[in-house]
Design a protein around this nucleic acid. Structure first.
Lengths: 138, 138
DNA sequence: AACGATATGTTATGTTATTACGCTTGCGGC
DNA sequence: GCCGCAAGCGTAATAACATAACATATCGTT
């Protein structure tokens, strides 16, 4: 049976290339960053990348960081899309930490229920400095 | 003494124009939307709008919605910048509801403290359908 | 008046994302 | 087999969002 880090097998060539690029990267990449890295593999147009990204994001294999206009591979291959995900983005090194918090999710649910708002998607992005960078700066 | 909805008097002409436009709008506006509305007032270049927006956002008089690449006037003239602000954006009518939640803020603080992350700025945006639009659709 | 800080106006350019169109591929039903 | 459909792909063009670089102006302070 399946184990931790396996990549779904039913990806198309472009989707695989894009996901591979994201996975190999230390930090978020813009669609155009990805495109540049994949020119050697035959990709030529932004749309090829955007289409692949759409699918990957749909499937929870990648995330879009709205405040960066960039993308990252999902950090946790187990729990795709299982709820609200928050991202902590370090302004110094660019690294992104992904985490889920049930309390926040629950709290949001309460707010929505109260106001009759139907939540479809939530983005939560924290900008700041990660512990490593703070240590280095000290 | 000052009361609820007064506009700060020390804004420059461009800042006033931009804030006025945002305040008059029912929903979020992109920088270019704003520019188009202000051509009659002599504005010609995107930068004039972006510069004004920068200041307004700095001062908490306007907010940037990252997931929309658009801007809104701050809904609450009293409590500018006093903490984490969440936005609920209706995909149907475009209206934006602005709210603060101390529990979420606190929870985020805890997470940050635990991991040694220094938070500088947080964006939280909920996409979905507002009560009004749900009622209409029913 | 001289200075610095802040704001302005303008042109050009850079970056991110989508529209439109046509071709190809895989697959189920007949 | 072959038709028809859905999904994917390739390409060109363009739209939408944002900033760089540079010159000028305005205002408060000394």
């Amino acid at each position: 049976m399946a184990h931790s880090h396996d990549i779904p097998t039913d990806l198309t060539r472009n989707q695989e290339l894009v996901l591979g690029t994201l996975t190999a990267s230390a930090g978020p990449l813009s669609a155009y960053d990805i495109l540049d890295k994949l020119r050697g593999d035959g990709l030529r147009a932004p749309l090829q990348v955007y289409r692949a990204l759409d699918k990957l994001v749909d499937r929870g294999l990648a995330h879009r960081l709205e405040s960066l206009n960039a993308f990252v591979a999902c950090a946790d291959m187990h729990c795709h899309r299982k709820g609200l995900i928050a991202f902590a983005i370090c302004e110094s090194c660019g690294k992104v930490d992904e985490f889920a918090d049930e309390v926040i999710e629950e709290r949001l649910g309460t707010w929505a229920r109260t106001g009759g708002f139907k939540v479809e998607r939530t983005t939560m992005e924290i900008r700041g400095r990660c512990a490593d960078c703070l240590a280095k700066a000290a």
